[in-house]
């Protein structure tokens, strides 16, 4: 795997990082194996992600992926967000993390989707749980 320039700059200067005071929903994910620890906050208006932030700590891949993912979903309808899978995530972050770093790349997506499901009072689907 290559630490592409965009990944590194997103890690060094992550977008949308911080807490959100009046979020409509939020979700915290922790990976005890590597210590990645992220919370995603979302604000929703008219079925769209009006604003999204993430907070926490982790490796370069987890932070950069959270930065790029949150940029990507801002303004998108939540139905679209519910459908984002791993293949699409790879396109968003511009790398294939490989099997060992998979969980680092997907932790923010997992938290984001679970925040959306929570907002809709739905249970996360299997695809989300298995990310």
């Amino acid at each position: 795997m290559d630490y592409a320039g965009e990944l590194i700059s997103n890690y060094e200067h992550p977008h949308n990082r911080g807490r959100m005071s009046k979020a409509d929903s939020s979700f915290h994910e922790f990976n005890p194996l590597c210590g990645d620890d992220l919370t995603i906050y979302i604000r929703i208006r008219d079925g769209r992600i009006e604003d999204v932030k993430f907070d926490g700590s982790g490796c370069a891949i987890s932070i950069a992926a959270a930065s790029m993912l949150t940029d990507e979903v801002k303004g998108k309808p939540i139905s679209k967000v519910e459908a984002i899978g791993f293949e699409e995530l790879k396109g968003i972050i511009g790398i294939d993390p490989g099997p060992v770093r998979l969980k680092c790349a997907t932790i923010s997506l997992k938290a984001l989707k679970k925040a959306v499901f929570l907002y809709e009072h739905k249970k996360p689907d299997g695809a989300t749980e298995n990310l």
Partner: peptide
């Protein structure tokens, strides 16, 4: 402060 997994990844490469 670089995460150890990022270090190990570069070592692996």
């Amino acid at each position: 402060g670089i995460h150890a997994h990022d270090i190990a990844q570069v070592f692996n490469d």
